[in-house]
Design a protein around this nucleic acid. Structure first.
Length: 207
DNA sequence: GGGATGATCCCA
DNA sequence: GGGATCATCCCG
């Protein structure tokens, strides 16, 4: 079942936690691909030195971050990779999807990644998962409550413990670099990197 | 207009 | 460890 608008009405941290265990789905001409979200990061608006809207920046690129919750914010990094964020409730808040456990359309994902790739490495990074899922800048601003890109509530999900760590690649962000705003399914084999700490809570507590 | 800068990935 | 590779931003 596709998540609804209100499900996205959370701040960055709550949304990042909430999305763990949910299923990211992409419909494309080649077929459907889907994966369990096992790793996320929170980006929390104008106060967060690592967030793209830090300091109240309002450039065309970040406009969608000031719009309605539950929309896609993909952007290009290093001129060659695309990273997918999901917008949250408060202005500027979003969650970065960092890794998936492939669930459906694994053949399609492998083909998009260029052939022989172990399942554990198909989508274990924010750039890789966008490539595997066929997510491009054409998804910019797309409403996840309708359309070909969306998140479904987890099926009968097995309970899992949450692990936390520092966000990746934000060393420039002053003290915000040390916030424990990276979240993952503890022990998952599909993470981009290991998390440093046990969070002390499970998926049930994050609802 | 032009230079600097990445929320990464892959290979050595 | 380092290079690829370019959209975006900021400064003039």
């Amino acid at each position: 079942m596709r998540l609804e608008r209100e499900d996205y009405q959370r701040d960055g941290v709550a949304l990042a936690r909430y999305l763990l265990g949910k299923v990211l789905v992409r419909q494309a001409p080649e077929g459907e691909t889907a994966g369990i979200i096992v790793e996320t990061e929170a980006y929390c608006g104008e106060e967060d030195a690592a967030c793209h809207v830090y300091g109240g920046k309002r450039t065309p690129r970040v406009q969608v971050l000031y719009g309605e919750a539950g929309h896609a914010y993909p952007y290009i990094i290093y001129g060659l990779h695309i990273l997918l964020n999901v917008t949250g409730g408060p202005p500027g808040h979003c969650a970065l999807i960092r890794a998936l456990e492939p669930l459906r359309g694994i053949e399609i994902m492998a083909a998009r990644r260029g052939g022989q790739v172990p399942v554990t490495a198909l989508a274990n990074g924010p750039g890789k998962l966008c490539r595997a899922m066929g997510i491009g800048m054409d998804c910019y601003g797309q409403d996840l409550c309708q359309g070909s890109l969306y998140v479904e509530a987890a099926a009968p999900s097995r309970p899992f413990a949450v692990a936390v760590g520092r966000r990746i690649g934000v060393d420039y962000a002053g003290e915000a670099r040390d916030y424990l705003w990276r979240f993952g399914v503890e022990g998952s084999a599909f993470l981009s990197r290991k998390l440093e700490f046990s969070a002390g809570f499970s998926d049930k507590d994050a609802k």
